[in-house]
Amino acid sequence: MIVATLKPIDEILEKASSYRRILVLGCGTCATISDWGGMKAVRQISEMLRMARSDRMQTHDLKEFVVQRQCEPAFLDPLLNEIRSIDAILSLACGVGVQILSERFPDITVLPAADTHFIGTISNSNVYREYCRGCGDCDILQTGGVCLVARCPKASLNGPCGGEDEFGMCEVDPKERCVWIQIAERLTVSRREGFLDKIVTPKDWSRSRSGRTMRIPDDGITDESES
């Protein structure tokens, strides 16, 4: 899932204060799993907007809606009726959702209500971990299913960086164990420790540049024309 978190409520209210007619739009996929993109969150944000505007003696016209995925244009069709007479959409979605909304409805201001962080998962309540950086060159088979690009702050592909403490806790986040220790444990369990001694050559980062457009040929699923 895309991991994002809601911006501070004061920042959201400040951004929304310039617009009178606002559609508060939730997203029913990743954001809902994170507990801030579903209808319940949409209503809570709307209520805060109403209260803030009442305090300022401002009039307001708020609509509430949730689409299944803001990141897919096809899922935005139900909005066609909702956006009439709207000044702005307050998007409770990731950065992809905000951009797709802006592309689909270029005459309406889209206000991002969230900060997008990474591709990851919820480990337990309120703890999100990055698991993938979308580098386009996946090699996690070698590392026991652990991605070093996403999970090691120094992307150290050949072993621990030396910054870990005596107990193997990470230099950058002392609450996390060095990801290399997890790799060693997994490879030992699966009797593939040999990888630990293999020198990994410099990674091909050409598939992870910003601004990528991937074109998949009509007759196949292979990616031959990434730019």
Partner: peptide, 10 residues
């Protein structure tokens, strides 16, 4: 530091 097996590997 950390895991001796890994340090030997390095």
């Amino acid at each position: 530091k950390g895991n001796m097996q890994l340090q030997e590997s390095m």
